[in-house]
Amino acid sequence: MTGPVPPAASDAAARFEPLRRRLVGLAYRMLGSRAEAEDIVQDAYLRWHGTDREAVEDAGAFLKRVVTRLCLDRLKAARTRRETYVGPWLPEPVLAEDVLIDAGPSGIAHDVGVALMLALERLSPLERAAFLLHDVFELGFDEVARILDRDPSACRQLAVRARDHVAAARPRFTVSESEGRRIADAFLAASRGGDLAALQSMLAADAVLHTDGGGKRSSALNRVFGGDKIARFFAGLARKNRPPSAVRPATINGLPGFVTIEADGVPQTTALEIGPAGITAVYIVRNPDKLGHIR
């Protein structure tokens, strides 16, 4: 039988658990990996457990500092992995019902949209941290400076540079949930049925297809540019591949899409970025390492 929980452990958990979702949300945005975010936050909890908590005035600020610094360390190794990654890299998909990922003050569609996550990937680790802490998690630059061990003015410059780079990734056009679902359902039917004309009518002329198989499953090794090429790509797949064994609609990183169980029994997520001229981006994650949490 297990004994009673020690008072110290109970106190540590009681102060930590209300902050867990926000910390996982921060780590996910820093790393683009839900699994790594959970690992980082668990490591932060262990450090919190061994801390003199009576001396900590603000547990939230302390833990954001710990999580950010752990993420910065992890990003150094991630940079090397990204350079050798097979094919396009996409963040691990987050579904709307994933209660573990905190949406942040501005809402999940803006804060973890795939285009924004890809823009964050192009920033330096410090730029990414300064931008997320200030612009997404709404910390003042004095607090950001304490977390990053930099001057407030330097942190402000980091955030400004980051903001300039990610500005283009902010959604300028939104569709209603019902319209997004209608388009996603139509795209699913056309892409799986090989309806070339329907695909061409839905895809914007400058659309981009990203498929992330990570070298573990078949996927396009380069992004596919242009609505017509993407339409022909899916029409060709429909002629060769068996239909999925299961399909369900989903909101993925704030975007309309669907989860499928493919013929090989492995899940796949498809998310659609939609603009005034139609579908502007298709994001498909097939790498099984990124889909372990998808059911």
Rank of each mutant, 00 (worst) to 15 (best):
E179P: 02
L196T: 02
V160A: 13
I261D: 00
G213I: 05
H165S: 14
L148R: 03
P18I: 07
L209M: 10
V41N: 00
Y85Q: 11
P18H: 08
K229N: 09
V114D: 09
E54P: 02
A204Q: 06
K64G: 04
E97S: 10
P125G: 14
S10W: 04
R47Q: 10
R82S: 13
G60R: 11
I261M: 05
W89H: 09
K229H: 06
V67W: 05
A130I: 11
I108T: 11
E121D: 14
S201E: 13
P288M: 12
T174R: 11
V114I: 15
L126Y: 15
L70H: 08
V5K: 10
G113C: 14
N241V: 01
F131Y: 15
L221D: 06
D98G: 09
F258G: 00
D11F: 09
T260N: 03
D212A: 10
I279W: 00
T269D: 02
E262T: 01
L116E: 05
P243H: 02
N222T: 14
D11N: 11
H49W: 10
L95M: 13
V112Y: 07
N253P: 00
H165E: 14
R242W: 00
A198E: 11
T251R: 06
P256M: 01
R248S: 09
A159R: 06
G25R: 02
H293V: 07
E97I: 10
A169S: 15
E83F: 04
S153F: 11
N222E: 12
T80H: 09
A190V: 01
P256A: 02
V99L: 12
I252V: 08
H210T: 06
A204T: 08
D212F: 00
E54H: 14
N222W: 07
G278W: 03
E92P: 07
K290H: 08
V67T: 11
Q157Y: 13
G227N: 02
F258M: 01
R29K: 10
A8P: 02
D185H: 02
R242L: 06
L188A: 08
V56F: 07
R15Y: 01
L148P: 03
G292D: 04
S10D: 11
H110L: 15
M1G: 07
T174C: 01
A167F: 06
H110D: 15
S191Q: 09
A154R: 13
Y283H: 05
I279M: 01
S201A: 14
G226V: 08
A168Y: 00
G32D: 05
H134M: 13
L196V: 07
Y283L: 02
E121R: 15
L237W: 00
D135G: 13
A167L: 13
D58C: 11
R295N: 12
A14R: 08
F258I: 00
L90W: 01
S219P: 02
N222V: 13
K290A: 09
G275A: 10
L133F: 10
